[in-house]
Design a protein around this nucleic acid. Sequence first.
DNA 1: ATAATTAAGGACAAATTTATCCTTAATTAT
DNA 2: ATAATTAAGGATAAATTTGTCCTTAATTAT
Lengths: 147, 147
Amino acid sequence: MFSKATEYALRATIYIAQRSSDENKPGMAEIAKAIDSPQSFTAKILQLLTRNNRIVSSVRGPNGGFFLTDKAKKLPVRSILEAMGEDEVLEKCVLGLKQCSEAKPCPMHTNYKLIKGQLIDLFETKSIQSLADEFENGGAKLNNRIK
Amino acid sequence: MFSKATEYALRATIYIAQRSSDENKPGMAEIAKAIDSPQSFTAKILQLLTRNNRIVSSVRGPNGGFFLTDKAKKLPVRSILEAMGEDEVLEKCVLGLKQCSEAKPCPMHTNYKLIKGQLIDLFETKSIQSLADEFENGGAKLNNRIK
DNA sequence: ATAATTAAGGACAAATTTATCCTTAATTAT
DNA sequence: ATAATTAAGGATAAATTTGTCCTTAATTAT
Ligand code: FES
Ligand code: FES
């Protein structure tokens, strides 16, 4: 559904949201290990998310790392997709027509639009914080390396 | 959601299902034009779908082209995804964990699994024929070039 | 039989995505 | 101030996806 880059972006952001505080900010090595992603590539992705502090914030130097402002934590998950330039996936025609519309629907449109609506709703309603909470409770994981 | 290759595969197969008969079998040029896809690339994709007549059948020579057997028309749309080696998209974890499961759910799992279930159901329940019917009725399109 | 037509298939090219590595800049601790 | 730490950023490479082109094989019409 999403590119690897966006998957890493989602997992990394959720991890940072849950693990960062004023005293403790996770760094690249920790994050990449926790979400099971290639470190250098994930670093590049966090650079995107950090531009203008749109989603993620960071500090350099000893004890530096990444964190989310309270404001950022309240953002809908969809804002991560937007920052990654991949949120059109939610609006796209499932058969790849140039636009998904009632006016010129593809043969799957009538059935798919219901699912599409729920997908959009999910990504717009759920906040980054709410996912971090699921992670914190211990019920949800951000990796599943075969043990 | 799907690769371009799979999008073309879906549109091409639906088009062939509706337009082919014993007397008239659409050829590559016609198909690519009708579904607004690059002809040579689409030809490669139809080669995949034609292997062992899994989904699409073909005949070479004058008045040759592509068609679907009655049996093939009854296949679920998911079988096209399978032939394209892309049906794991339906089962995948939305955050890219190696497996989507109740045992090790990601933070979106609880919400996403409902949508996922509907997606799987849609692709397993809908037949290629039923989509061809929507196209035939004229209500559904397989392209939307900006006119 | 011959020529024309059309899909099959191989080789290759372009574009995009994924990934690594190294240098620079900022910040902190000493 | 100096050294250590950590993110930012540039350059580049590898892998995958998307796409084209040309030759071959099968079939049909004449
Ligand atoms: S037009 Fe295809 S899903 Fe809406
Ligand atoms: S584990 Fe992520 S969607 Fe099921």
